[in-house]
């Protein structure tokens, strides 16, 4: 069972599988993209604010952010999801699957992004900030006009990897039965038993999302690259 005729027949099977389950698959894809978009935006904001607090050693906030980063980075995200969804009801906090879905990947991505941005901001040479001060900028405006544009770009490649990991981690919402792509695919598989077709479509979907995301992001990256790096 190999060769071109077999391959073509299989592709035909996959195509009719997609057509038969189009509604469910589109729903799963939409939920995956929705949760990913919320989490990427949230991780960006958390990383920016806490990364700046860490780099500039803002009292209390900086220490609290360090604890947050270490706890999240050194424990598995799947256990964090279990905590939010299966453990919190013990103390009367009941979050629905959608809330846990976006919240858990946002918390996770935010922790990694705090490190990315902290490293980026700390890599900005002190003399640049001194130059900003010489031009009459004060604390916050030095950050907005000097540290952020330069340090943000230094942090870009590592934060991009975090966003891609965030998208891939949405698949873990299978364990709380949130109907994103993986959950939907396994439900279809349980009903139709078309296992090869199901997993072919699932794998192609994720590779398409992740690969096109990294292509788009690399383009943005080269567009935003610091002049001195683009030689």
């Amino acid at each position: 069972m190999s060769g071109l005729p077999f391959t073509l027949a299989f592709l035909g099977d996959v195509w009719s599988f997609v057509q038969e389950n189009a509604d469910e698959l589109a729903e799963g894809l939409r939920n995956t993209l929705e949760v990913s978009a919320i989490a990427v935006a949230g991780a960006f904001v958390i990383g920016l604010v806490l990364g700046a607090a860490r780099a500039h050693r803002v009292p209390v906030v900086s220490q609290a952010a360090a604890v947050y980063v270490e706890v999240i980075r050194n424990t598995p995200i799947l256990v964090q999801i279990f905590m939010l969804y299966f453990a919190l009801p013990q103390v009367g906090i009941r979050l629905d699957a959608f809330t846990v879905a976006w919240l858990s990947v946002t918390i996770w991505g935010g922790a990694f992004n705090t490190e990315n941005f902290r490293a980026g901001f700390e890599a900005v040479p002190v003399r640049y900030r001194e130059a900003g001060a010489a031009l009459g900028f004060r604390g916050v405006s030095t950050f907005l006009n000097v540290t952020l544009p330069i340090g943000g770009r230094i942090a870009l490649p590592s934060s991009i990897n975090t966003y891609i990991s965030v998208v891939k981690n949405t698949s873990l919402m299978y364990v709380i039965a949130y109907p994103e792509l993986t959950t939907v695919a396994l439900q279809i598989n349980a009903l139709t038993l078309e296992t090869t077709e199901t997993f072919t479509v699932l794998a192609i979907s994720y590779l398409t999302i992740v690969w096109s995301l990294s292509i788009v992001i690399r383009l943005v990256e080269s567009h935003l690259a610091l002049p001195e790096d683009s030689r």
Binding site: S171, T196, T198, F199, Y206, L207
Partner: peptide, 21 residues
């Protein structure tokens, strides 16, 4: 690119459910 691009969960599902099929 394939094994970095796929979520590990999906890779494990493929090995556990799709390969025996």
């Amino acid at each position: 690119e394939v094994w970095r691009g796929l979520p590990i969960l999906v890779t494990i599902f493929i090995i556990f459910f799709a390969l025996p099929a």
